[in-house]
Design a binder for these strands. Structure first.
Lengths: 243, 243
DNA sequence: CGACGCTTTGACACAACTCAACAACCGTGG
DNA sequence: CCACGGTTGTTGAGTTGTGTCAAAGCGTCG
């Protein structure tokens, strides 16, 4: 059975209203949910994968392992996020996906997605919007790692995370739960864990934000956004893809 | 009229064979080609865009400008590449797109893409494959900038570029034409132009490759791949999306 | 010819990394 | 109950990869 609140629906609805049939299609798609324990690897880098996942509860972690053992984290999926659609198309997964906390996911077979696209084209458009948004976030992430300083980058990361969590109702206006440790943060930001620690101290001392005891508290959002050079990737309701 | 060789077709065909109707649909889509001079900006960061482009000849440049004026280049589109599909969906473009050399592009209206997807679903699948591949490349790029050293990163960049160019028949087995200068390289790799210069000297001295007079010569491909930790994003003919 | 765009080099500065150590916190088991 | 190891966070000292600044070389083109 589906969780109390369906975060995927919450997210898609912010893009376009969905009718009853579409909602039940989404519910159906996610009906077979699986509980996975923290650390479980659901998608394996370099292997052929024929399934995608919708994360329903808990956090995930998409990353690549490099030659020297280094790790680059691409994104931390949160409830409502889809993972692995791309690897389905490319036939082999270019990255791995693990559960960062105990989590609930639903496996989605390719065939069902294709079927859904046929039967409910508007859902296809909504899904396309969601994945495009994820892409835009990856591109922004690239810009961060390539051209922002460690502090700017870190501030930017938290602003983006905050926006993503609010979109599915998992963050309040000044704080949110965040199960990441400094190693994970480091591998996402392209920094060393030790430097992340110093950066967090910096942000704390500048009274911008704190990250302690698994919770992020935003003390000066305007200041953070200014520091990060943050611009919203606006939800922007669909005017264009009238389907 | 279409150019002598249609690079988009070359690329898509490497993924799945196309029939006559599909080929002429693609030809039709690109029929209205426009010549643009070097430096012309076709997509503007932050603006609402309702068109996408197919690059037919010449090189392009997709990038973000940051707060402090810094620039992060996302990718250098080469002939056969599609640009701006995402901005069409998100309604506003998250990055800019310019012609890096004199180029030939064709504007593609959103409506025509949607029409194409309806009429020729296999073309949709092929296009989805191409964009997924681009995404995978962006992710790999992120990993490079986040976790590889300057030399590794540079070697990796050229290996990938080489693969992309070969896919559309624009690179031989040991060299290819490359109109980039060291500033552009720097902004793509997240380095300073001066350091790029040092890195290129390094690669030259190690007898791995040279980049001079607009041409890249690969002297030791195995060595480059080893240094870069390069893995192919294999074309992989479609077995999965039987449409 | 001079101007311009691009490359190349050297000297120096600094952001971020590494190593090493310690502190705080946890759950577990004696 | 305390002792314990394991995980995570914190700090300092020294190193290094890369950035910055400044200047010169070198084609090309008007």
């Amino acid at each position: 059975m589906a969780p109390a609140t369906d975060h995927l629906v919450t997210k898609l609805v912010s893009f376009m209203p969905l009718n009853q049939a579409e909602l039940s299609c989404l519910a159906d798609l996610q009906s077979a949910s699986i509980e996975v324990e923290r650390g479980r690897e659901l998608l394996h880098q370099g292997e052929q994968e024929h399934v995608a996942y919708v994360l329903q509860a808990g956090w995930g972690c998409c990353f690549k392992i490099l030659q020297d053992g280094g790790r680059q984290i691409i994104t931390f999926p949160v409830p409502g996020d889809c993972v692995g659609l791309r690897s389905v198309i490319l036939r082999t997964s270019d990255h791995a996906f693990t559960a960062l906390t105990d989590a609930v996911v639903s496996r989605v077979e390719v065939s069902r997605i294709l079927g859904m696209l046929n039967e409910f084209p508007r859902l296809g458009a909504a899904l396309l919007w969601a994945t495009s948004r994820d892409e835009a976030i990856t591109v922004e992430h690239l810009a961060s790692v390539g051209r922002r300083t460690a502090v700017e980058r870190t501030a930017h990361f938290f602003m983006e995370l905050w926006d993503r969590l609010r979109l599915v109702g998992l963050a309040s206006e000044q704080e949110f739960d965040c199960p990441l440790n400094q190693y994970e943060l480091a591998d996402a930001l392209g920094l060393s864990a030790i430097h992340v620690n110093r950066v967090l101290r910096d942000l704390r001392q500048k009274k911008l934000m704190t990250f302690q005891a698994r919770t992020v508290s935003l003390h000066d959002i305007a200041g953070l956004k200014r520091l990060a050079g943050y611009e919203v990737i606006e939800p922007g309701t669909s005017r264009l893809l009238e389907l």
